[in-house]
Amino acid sequence: MPDEPSDGKFPIIDDFDRVIHEPARLIIMSHLYVLDRADFLFLKRQTGLTWGNLSSHITKLETAGYVEVIKKFIDRKPYTLIELTKEGREAFRLYQRQMKHVFEGLDE
């Protein structure tokens, strides 16, 4: 996870977390940030990604330690649930602050 730039310093490209910066992964992370956990199907419906895309991005996020994939039986049916890890939540918050810092003061 990249370090947060010091106050007043404009973040350089290396400061950004490239794992989160990719649009598809950013939208997945955003959903998991506001939901406790969701399965593949729910994330697919909400993000509009294909199964293949979603699966590969989840794998990348899992490799980075940002999400956890949990196999669980709910009402005797198997579900593969995805949730943000503590590191993932912190990385997302940092990314949020960095992006806010970049766009602060700019007109729409």
Binding site: D36, L41, L43, D75
Partner: peptide
Amino acid sequence: KLITAPRLGYVEFS
């Protein structure tokens, strides 16, 4: 459980 979860997916809200 019967209609929503198999179509929209399973989710736990905050």
